[in-house]
């Protein structure tokens, strides 16, 4: 097919529209995928943070020997 046929008056407008729609579709898919990947990454980071936090937030207790083994002071 002659490439110039795409530029004929009756067809050119449809060709221009198809190009514009393709560009928009490409941009949309690109944004959509990045958006999804960013969400996954954010979730993973949050999970990672939560995994790290329990150890630091666990109740701490120290045991002190005062006078005899029967008496213990427990600090929380």
């Amino acid at each position: 097919m002659n490439p110039e046929a795409f530029l004929e008056a009756g067809i050119a407008i449809y060709v221009a529209m198809a190009v514009a729609l393709s560009v928009w579709l490409g941009i949309f898919v690109y944004l959509w995928r990045i958006d999804a990947q960013a969400r996954v990454l954010k979730r993973e980071l949050e999970r990672e943070r939560q995994r790290e936090q329990p150890a630091s937030r666990a109740p701490r207790a120290t045991v002190k020997r005062v006078s005899s083994p029967e008496h213990e002071i427990v600090e929380k």
Partner: peptide, 18 residues
Amino acid sequence: GKLLIGLWMAGVTIVMFL
């Protein structure tokens, strides 16, 4: 909402040309 943006802009493009 994001899907709607996609469809909306596609619609605007079609109306703009045709």
